[in-house]
Write a protein that binds this DNA or RNA. Structure first.
Lengths: 212, 212
DNA sequence: CGATTTCCTTGACAGTTGTCAAGCTCCGGC
DNA sequence: GCCGGAGCTTGACAACTGTCAAGGAAATCG
């Protein structure tokens, strides 16, 4: 649980900015705690305990629990999409697209497995708690678009055309990736190699390949 | 929440059997409540309220909450695998395998979406709560094997060979199916058609297709 | 029929939860 | 330098949680 107890220092800047920055800081801390314990097991008091503040602060900066978690989800989104943004711009060959995509996925698998698990958790919770739904489905769409951009670019540089829709492609890679995340968190080994193999195997199979 | 308040009637048979049957009955009722509210929002009292019994009974038949939910998961497994068992035996052509598989998936999408959502929920919870892990991963393996049997049979009847491992095939169809379940529960329309299209599109692409 | 086991209800417990209000501390402006 | 308010802590609340024990009802068996 790693309770980091540093000195609370008041940040500079106008009131509105300070408020927004504390919100972000608290949400980042909450994101950490949530990713370790999961939605069902995380209380506001636990979140506060793992931050530099006491539990009352959370209601000074957030209206209620839903407000906080919603803000966490929004924060996650920014971090998440960032890692995949450069791929389509930077790559000049189909192989390069694939390499960069695999590299980005590998990095996420290696370093952000807990956050990823939390994303799967919150996405599911949004099916029970409609308050989260709009924020979650916004992220979901942006992930789908990311996958679609990558696949489209890969197809384009291969002189081909995708054989599946963006939704389908996203669902497929989401399935492959989430299963590897789950295996990793269950103590699996050598999953980065599996990830690379599976993604590289699937990409060419998602193109039309000249056939009607 | 549909609280069904019927008369409690004592079942016949020897003590051991009666005990097991009450356990199943309570677990089935719990399964219903869990699938409506989700793991995080379901309490033992809520489960009891939606059954014909009072909340004390649960501790007469189950050691604790984990014991109950574990039993729920086991019950789910039996119901789940049943629907896909006949496919590989019954089908005599590749097209028939595909038809029966799509039909079974469609039925689950249409009638068991809530239970399916619960399965995804509990599978994720098992990543936080190791007590569930062994039961969950047992079901996960049996689902993977089911998908693998279907794909293998499809390949065999096509005079071909699968191009992907059982894990990969399961991950892909799990991704496709779970995304459709989520969309359905978010109020999506015409998803059975999408399901059929996507599964039929993917099957031939998961075969070697004569190439090395 | 009476006694005993089985089954179930009720009520209570200690702990936890989200929420909020009273009040403290300390910075920034007058 | 002092005062107002922003920022934070503390403590309290009602509701809810899993768990358990005492005891009643009902069926079974001698």
């Amino acid at each position: 649980m790693t309770p980091v107890v540093t000195k609370v220092e008041r940040v500079a800047g106008p009131v509105g900015v300070r408020f927004a920055e504390r919100r972000d800081e608290l949400a980042r801390s909450a994101l950490q705690t949530l990713s370790e314990l999961g939605y069902a097991r995380t209380s506001l008091r636990e979140i506060a305990q793992n931050s530099d503040f006491s539990h009352g602060v959370l209601h000074y900066y957030f209206a209620d629990k839903v407000d906080l978690i919603t803000h966490c989800v929004r924060l996650y989104k920014n971090r998440c999409v960032l890692r995949y943004d450069h791929i389509t711009d930077q790559a000049t060959t189909a192989g390069e697209v694939l390499d960069l995509f695999v590299e980005a996925l590998t990095l996420t698998l290696r370093e952000d497995a807990l956050i990823q698990r939390l994303w799967y958790d919150l996405r599911l919770q949004s099916l029970f708690e409609p308050s989260f739904r709009s924020d979650v489905s916004l992220i979901d769409r942006s992930l789908r678009d990311m996958v679609w951009r990558v696949l489209s670019r890969y197809a384009e540089l291969s002189g081909d055309v995708p054989a599946v829709s963006g939704d389908t492609a996203y669902a497929i890679f989401d399935g492959i990736f989430s299963h590897l995340i789950m295996r990793q968190l269950s103590g699996g080994e050598d999953l980065e190699r599996l990830l690379s193999r599976r993604v590289r195997l699937m990409f060419p199979r998602l193109l039309k390949g000249g056939e009607a």
